[in-house]
Write a protein that binds this DNA or RNA. Sequence first.
DNA 1: ATGAAAGCGCTAACAC
DNA 2: GTGTTAGCGCTTTCAT
Lengths: 340, 340
Amino acid sequence: VRKPQGRSTIYDIAREAGASPSTVSAALSDSWAKRRISAATVERIRRIAAERGYAPNLQARGLRRARSGLVGMILPGHENRFFSSVSQAFAVETRRRGQCPAIVLTGRDPAEQARSVESLMGYAVEALMLVGATDPEPLAETCRRAGVPHVFLDLPCPSAPSIVSDNAHGAQALTDLLLDRAPPPDPDDPRSLIHFLGGDTTLYASAERLKGFLDVARRRGAFFSDSQIIACGYESARARVEIEALHARLGGLPAALFVNSIDAFNGVARFLGALPEAEIAECVIGCYDFDPFGALLRFPVHMVRQKSEAMVSAAFARVDEGTQAPSLALIRPELIIALR
Amino acid sequence: VRKPQGRSTIYDIAREAGASPSTVSAALSDSWAKRRISAATVERIRRIAAERGYAPNLQARGLRRARSGLVGMILPGHENRFFSSVSQAFAVETRRRGQCPAIVLTGRDPAEQARSVESLMGYAVEALMLVGATDPEPLAETCRRAGVPHVFLDLPCPSAPSIVSDNAHGAQALTDLLLDRAPPPDPDDPRSLIHFLGGDTTLYASAERLKGFLDVARRRGAFFSDSQIIACGYESARARVEIEALHARLGGLPAALFVNSIDAFNGVARFLGALPEAEIAECVIGCYDFDPFGALLRFPVHMVRQKSEAMVSAAFARVDEGTQAPSLALIRPELIIALR
DNA sequence: ATGAAAGCGCTAACAC
DNA sequence: GTGTTAGCGCTTTCAT
């Protein structure tokens, strides 16, 4: 006979088992070695609990223990595969540690992110990972104040442990590859020059990528003009317009194209899809981001895949270290070379 | 001067403000109209709270109020875009309602799903959405026992409100489209027949899709043999092997191909990518699932996009209705016709 | 207009 | 080996 509404408590079970609540608590909790309860009692209590479908009230437990068993993560959303795989890796790792992942999608709004962090603090998360936070400092302050270990991912926070992918290195590697495969640049022929398309270079990640791109392009004598940089944002429609404009301006595709972000690439691919085979073949194409369908398009495209699992592992390692000292770990992404 | 570790409480604030905890609680909570506190007191308390960066302990509040402000969702993972967009839509809608989304990725293991549901019950979620649960009945029972409103998505539960996409209808529409565009079937020429590839037809969704496929194929005199059905699972590598085998067996591609699931399609696309243009052109291809890059491949592919936002809206509507009576809502997916 | 006190369900210190 | 008790931080009567 259980209560009409709601769940049974250790008191209900204690009554039915003729034991005290603390005995029940101990019998049901994993470490009941300390209180030396008779095997018989444990058995009886467990049986009754199972019969009644008892499950502990985790809010009460968390309140009492001052820890909840939750590990929090905030991230902008699941619109791209990178974020999806980060949250996937986070969930897997959290479970492996016997805790419960609490993932909150916040969008890109810093105010919403702040609210979400407050919420998670309120639920007494034991650690917090912050993914893609554009305004990290206030969030870090909230975590510090609450004494909650925290790690920033993807976008770094100057005052806290951060794990970001090595954008500069990835961009260098991709640029090198593109230049290796393109004909030598001729300063008098804009079409022969590598171009960089997409992204918002006021944002950390894209700024780093652009830096890596410029490093290599300059070193290899392939950069001559700012018109080689078209940082038109992450929107696919916009990228489509820009590649079309570039194509018109140059009278064809450039010899090499570095596309920054998968969404921009989608726009580019839509435009390229309409061009004759032969024309596309004259352009070496790279995309900073990965999509499993990227390898299946009409034309070859080299891709950069960020290592989400490695980043999440590194983040947990930081949490385990227990230091909240600022640090910046760079995780090298993987260059995926098109076979064709 | 705040406590060295951890957060300040209403008691700390009460002391500093020279008020009682209950006054502080009322002053900070939104509905303080009931207790007629002087504007001055409210102001003072709010200022102090802000200074100290006070944020309420949501576990304590939840414990006292017997509700947490959380809405839970379990789903298998983010490996495909459909699940990603479901959780995205869920997060947006939950926030719009002033609650906090708690998304737990469980993988495909029913035991893990059961554990996750228990967890979420323990955190006193106010409602729970269960996405892609293959063994729904025990989960529904747990929810009922706890008195928590719950809705199943994607895969239905016979004893609870369920929202699934109209797999049969989507499959019919896709099959009709494929047959419209393929040459008339000739029973003596296996190559002229439409084939169904991928998925696990012991699972609800694929069973429905197969049913829809067969309905139309039979009605239109395009189904003659079980060898037209190759339900080889959802794995891309496996699908690749199977399409290759089919190609060998028929001595070419079939006139029409219904690929069930995006992962299977990835495998198919990898194989097709290696075939000569002319050969692919003889096969009308459809995929039950959507990917934005699908439209950019070397060959046209018709796709079916499930309406995740609509499904989530419908799920919340069920929760709001407050009835836990079994029901099954079918949401029609969208047919995306390739332009080429 | 405000304070005192009880109690949500659980755990941990301390009794016996 | 097991029971009693005191909170965790909050909300909510019920007083005043």
